[in-house]
Simulated assay, not measured.
Amino acid sequence: MVSARSRIEQNGRTSCPISGQRNILAAAANGVRSFIAGQGGDADMVFTRVGVDERRLGDPKLALDLGAYVGMMEEAAIQTGNDNFGLWYGQQFRPAMLGLIGEVALASPTLGAAVANLAELFPYHQQATETRLVRDGDLLRLEYRILDGAILARRQDAELTMGMFANVFRYCLGADWTPEEVHCEHPRPESWREHERAFDAPVHFGQHTNAVVFRDRHLDRPMPGGDLARLTRLRDELIRVAGGTGSPGFLDRVKGEVRSRLPDGTAGVEEVAEGLGLARWTLQRRLADVGLSYSDVVEAVRRDLAFLHLRQPHVSVAEIGFMLGYSEVSAFSRAFRRWTGQSPQTYRAPLACRGETAES
C-alpha cells in the first residue's frame, strides 16, 4: 500500500485517456432539481434547454455529457437569478452525495489518502478533466480543470467543484475547517465576497487553474468509516463504470492547454506542446494537418474568451486583457478591433443596455 504522503508527491495524474469521451457520472447532479427549485428556478426548463435527460439523473452510475452538465449549471444560474448558484450548490454537496468518487474518499484510511484518491481518480468520475496535487513547501494545491477548450462558460462548475473538494476536508476535520486559499480560473464575479464567506478564506480569480490550497498537516488524520477492503472494491467499480478517463479531441485539447496558460503569459508553443506531452514540431504538424497554425489557435482562444468575459460588465477591459495574456490593454484593444472592427468598450455597451450576462 503506497503511503498517502508519497502518493501526494507523485502529483496524482491519471493516464490512458480515451479520445472523444467527455462524460460525467450523474451523481454529480445529485439533488439539482430540488436545489434549482429552492432557488426559485424552473428545473424542467433548465434540463430542456441544455439537453439533459432527467431520467439519467436518477442513477448515479449513469453518464451525462460533460458539456451538457456544465451548461446545466450555467443555465441554472440564469433561471434562478442567483449568479452564485454553483458556489452554494457545491457548499451543500456532501461527499456521500457524489456517488462512487465520494464513497472512495470516505472509505480511504486517512485524509491524505482521501485527497490523493480524489486527485488520482476524479477523472474517472468526470472525464476530460485534470486533477492533481502540487506541493509548494508546506502548502499543497488540489487542482482541477476541464481539459476541453470547447467548454467555454464553466464558472458555476468550477465553484461547485471547489466546494465539493472542501467538504471532503470538512468531513474529516470538522465543519470549521478552512483552506488557506481558493483559486478560480474565471474572472472575479460581482458578488465575490460571498465566495470568501463560503470558504472563510481568500479567493483568487483569473488563475491558470482552479484549486483548494491547504497546509501539509492533519493528512494522517483517520477518515471516519475508512475501510481498505471497501476502498479497493469502490476503486475497481469506479474505473469499470467509467471505462476510462476520456479526452476531448485534439484541437479542443490544444485550446484547453492554451487557455490555462494565458493568465500566466506562458502560452508559447514550446510550453503548450510540453503540457500536451508532444514535441513542438509534432504539435505544429498536427495543427497544419487541419489547416491551422499555432498562432491561429491562440488567436481563436483569445477571441472566444474575450467575447465571454466582455458580457460581464463588472470585469474591466484591462483585467480581461491581462487574463488573455496581453501585457498592455492597448494590445488587447488592437486585437479586438482586428476581430470585430470596434473597441472592447464599444462592443460591450449594447450588451450592458440589454442586461446580457456571460451565459446569455
Rank of each mutant, 00 (worst) to 15 (best):
residue 8 I to F: 11
residue 19 S to E: 15
residue 27 A to S: 15
residue 34 S to P: 00
residue 35 F to K: 02
residue 36 I to A: 02
residue 45 M to V: 12
residue 62 L to I: 03
residue 63 A to V: 04
residue 65 D to Q: 11
residue 75 E to Q: 14
residue 75 E to S: 08
residue 79 Q to N: 08
residue 85 F to P: 04
residue 88 W to S: 10
residue 93 F to A: 10
residue 93 F to H: 11
residue 97 M to D: 15
residue 102 G to C: 06
residue 103 E to D: 13
residue 103 E to C: 01
residue 108 S to H: 04
residue 110 T to W: 04
residue 114 A to W: 00
residue 117 N to F: 00
residue 117 N to R: 01
residue 118 L to I: 14
residue 119 A to N: 03
residue 119 A to V: 05
residue 130 E to Q: 12
residue 131 T to E: 08
residue 131 T to K: 04
residue 132 R to T: 10
residue 134 V to G: 01
residue 136 D to R: 15
residue 143 E to Y: 00
residue 161 T to K: 12
residue 163 G to C: 04
residue 172 C to Q: 07
residue 181 E to F: 10
residue 182 V to D: 05
residue 204 H to D: 05
residue 205 F to H: 07
residue 214 F to K: 02
residue 222 P to H: 08
residue 228 L to W: 06
residue 230 R to P: 05
residue 239 I to T: 12
residue 244 G to E: 04
residue 244 G to V: 03
residue 247 S to T: 02
residue 250 F to W: 08
residue 250 F to A: 05
residue 255 K to Q: 13
residue 259 R to S: 10
residue 265 G to W: 06
residue 265 G to C: 07
residue 270 E to S: 13
residue 272 V to A: 04
residue 278 L to Q: 09
residue 278 L to R: 10
residue 287 L to R: 02
residue 287 L to V: 07
residue 295 S to D: 12
residue 296 D to I: 07
residue 307 F to L: 13
residue 311 R to I: 03
residue 311 R to A: 13
residue 311 R to H: 14
residue 315 V to Y: 00
residue 320 I to N: 01
residue 323 M to Y: 11
residue 328 E to V: 09
residue 328 E to K: 12
residue 330 S to K: 11
residue 333 S to W: 00
residue 335 A to S: 15
residue 341 G to C: 08
residue 343 S to K: 03
residue 345 Q to W: 10
residue 346 T to W: 05
residue 346 T to D: 09
residue 351 L to A: 08
residue 359 E to D: 14
